[in-house]
Amino acid sequence: MSELNEIMNPIKENICLPEFLVYERPDTLTEQEFHYCPGCGHSTVHKLLMEVVSEMGIVGDTIGVAPVGCSVFAYHYLGVDMQQAAHGRACAVATGIKRVMPEKIVFTYQGDGDLAAIGTAETVHAANRGENLLVIFINNGIYGMTSGQMAPTSLEGMVTTTSPYGRDVLTQGYPLKISELLAHLPGVYYVTRQAVNTAGNVRKTKKALQRGLEYQKKNLGFCLVEVVSNCPSNLKMTPLESNEFVANQMIPFYPLGDIKVPEVK
């Protein structure tokens, strides 16, 4: 603990005891501090994913695939074996891993540019083959790493650096609802869309990730957990404003909830 922490965090010895602990940083996150901007949803989802991996006791059985984009460095933070894939190819790389190690739990972690633009073919075909993968799809409607260009999921009229007058759907296409698109495929087992803009939504996202990983443990098919997220820096907003943007602009177009759930027999 640093000096600042010692001064500002006087520990109440009667409460700060292991038996009263209700939340701590999951030990499956590495010590490395996230490079993400303040308030970024990527960090939250990384954290939730590792919480679930810890709680399920599957650290040694899980192999992840990192994309290209802001979360290109996911392998620096997620304390499981990881591979870094070329832009858009995460589902192909994950297919390669899963096919030779079917007993392992394999996930990809991808942003909207990686999954819904350059990697659409890999994603659709992995889903259509019913590959036993958990695909975690972070949809913040904008390119983060390259600084705020239009994403396939950018909303109609949304101002980005490559749609400076607002996304014109007649010339720049419509925002792409990947989850709805994939849900139609018979190989797809579970599709849900969640968010991390409020404590309640964070809880639901964690449950969705848990569900996705439980299904992977049983090799039940392709699972997609879309997380509607923010990008304060490129939306040029404070973290709080960007979460309001998620609530007021993104979620009305990308409604939250389960899109495809396994039939209960």
Partner: peptide
């Protein structure tokens, strides 16, 4: 009250919560 909402939403996982 140790509800842990703060820790749940903390992107950087820097909050530890106790509840007695």
């Amino acid at each position: 009250t140790g509800c842990a909402n703060c820790a749940l939403v903390c992107p950087d996982a820097v909050i530890t919560v106790y509840r007695k």
